[in-house]
Amino acid sequence: MDLTVKTLEGKDAGKLSVSEAVFGLDPREDIIARMVRYQLAKKQQGTHQTKTRAEISRTGKKMYKQKGTGRARHHSARAPQFRGGGRAHGPVTRSHAHDLPKKIRALALRHALSAKLKAEELIIIDNLVASEAKTKELVGALSGLGLTNVLFIGGAELDGNFKLAAQNIPNVDVLPVQGINVYDILRRKKLVLSKAAVEALEERFK
């Protein structure tokens, strides 16, 4: 499969042959959804916690005598039914992460790439390099390409000027190819890959 390669200025820079096994799959929403759930669950902090009756700083003395008051038989004011008492069955600090097979994770990334190509939301740029770290110049280049909500994936090492110029632009993310993931691909409208990123991805999925 041959795809058109462009420059940041919007000019054609030839063609690039890409693998059908990486970019030509028929996208499956169920596999992509499983991967997104896996990523979001792993990202969740899980630091929510309430105090049980054992953790409340309050006297443990019996509230009043057992018999003769006509009232219910209570002991400590730390019990959950009292204001200021502990919480029964409240949330505790835990990990929300769950397992997903490595093969499914790799397959989900290929399906996400194929989905972007099928939706005509994938652009290949010859090189993600900026001569100067100037946000205004990069904004002009992106508007020329019609990019307002985009994820850039560069090679193993990102160009410093390009990264600095892009980091202040709203709805624009820049990642090295090692950081490519399904959730970030889907949360941006367009996906822009450098030639180096395409070659690295095809090598990875050989």
Rank of each mutant, 00 (worst) to 15 (best):
A41H: 12
D26T: 12
R58V: 11
T47Y: 10
P27N: 08
K65M: 07
K42D: 03
T50P: 09
R58T: 11
I56Q: 12
G68K: 06
H74I: 13
D26H: 05
Y38N: 09
Q49L: 02
R28K: 15
Y64R: 08
Y38H: 15
T52V: 12
Q45Y: 02
I56K: 12
H74M: 13
T50K: 05
K67F: 01
A41F: 12
K51D: 08
R34P: 04
Q66H: 06
I32N: 03
R58Y: 14
V36I: 15
G46F: 04
H48A: 04
K61W: 11
A41S: 10
A72W: 06
K61E: 15
H48T: 01
L25H: 02
K65S: 11
L25W: 01
V22K: 03
M63Y: 10
G70I: 05
K51G: 10
Q66E: 12
Q44V: 02
Q66A: 11
F23V: 02
H48N: 04
K51N: 09
S57Y: 14
K43C: 02
S57A: 14
R71L: 15
L40S: 01
E29A: 00
T52L: 09
E29R: 08
H74Q: 13
Q45T: 08
A72M: 13
T47F: 12
K62R: 07
L25R: 00
I56E: 11
K62G: 11
E29C: 00
E29V: 02
I32C: 01
T50Y: 00
A54E: 15
V36A: 10
R73V: 07
A21G: 11
Y38C: 08
G24A: 08
R34H: 03
A21E: 06
G70Y: 04
H74T: 11
R58D: 13
K42L: 05
T69P: 00
K67I: 00
K61Q: 14
H48Q: 06
Y38G: 08
D30W: 11
H75I: 11
V36S: 10
K61L: 14
T47W: 08
V22L: 05
Q44Y: 05
Q39T: 08
A21W: 00
D30K: 07
Y64K: 06
D26A: 06
T50S: 01
F23A: 08
H74N: 13
L25A: 01
R73P: 01
T52P: 11
K51H: 07
E29W: 09
K65C: 04
E55F: 09
R71N: 12
G24R: 00
R58L: 15
R58S: 12
T52Q: 10
T52Y: 08
A21N: 09
K65R: 15
T69F: 10
E29S: 00
K42P: 00
L40N: 02
H74L: 10
L25I: 05
G60K: 15
